[in-house]
């Protein structure tokens, strides 16, 4: 195999990893860099989903069938990651639910869901409190 072959194999042969990594980075970026809290949550979901996809992709066995008791099921995919990810999805949904609830509450109190604006409001209030206390 030539050098090009190795590189092609590295890129194409493991494409599912690349997809996961790309998704992860996209999600991670959104979580960190976006000011809008909802976009953060969306990023968080993409981030988690990337990991789920990674799990699912490693469970695939070459030429395997669905992991059910079946006469042709000589080779079958690893069912365990599926089960694990089922749990992880539940977790992820719960986190999202809590996060959304928080955002709703934040919107009610601050009238905005832009992080920088909220922090600014907090800061202004803190200064006001300090002035009131006469310090």
């Amino acid at each position: 195999m030539s050098d090009y072959g190795v590189i092609t194999e590295f890129i194409l042969g493991k494409y599912h990893y690349w997809i996961c990594i790309a998704l992860m980075v996209v999600g991670f970026y959104a979580m960190i860099a976006k000011e809008n809290l909802l976009k953060k949550i969306i990023g968080m979901n993409i981030f988690q989903t990337a990991v789920f996809l990674f799990y699912i992709s490693i469970s695939k066995v070459h030429g395997g069938t669905a992991p059910i008791t079946w006469e042709h099921a000589v080779i079958y995919d690893n069912p365990l990651p599926h089960v694990l990810i089922l749990t992880a999805i539940v977790v992820s949904v719960s986190v999202t639910a809590v996060a959304l609830a928080l955002v709703i509450e934040i919107y009610r109190t601050y009238d905005t869901i832009e992080e920088n604006e909220i922090l600014e409001l907090n800061r202004v209030e803190e200064e006001k409190n300090l002035e009131l206390a006469g310090r």
Binding site: M31, K40, Q48, V51, A99, E115, N122
Partner: peptide
């Protein structure tokens, strides 16, 4: 009311950690 934002920040960080 600051507690909401504190919680949200923790949520984001916590989720990154757990993931």
């Amino acid at each position: 009311r600051e507690s909401l934002m504190a919680s949200f920040t923790y949520l984001v960080m916590g989720t990154i950690a757990a993931t």
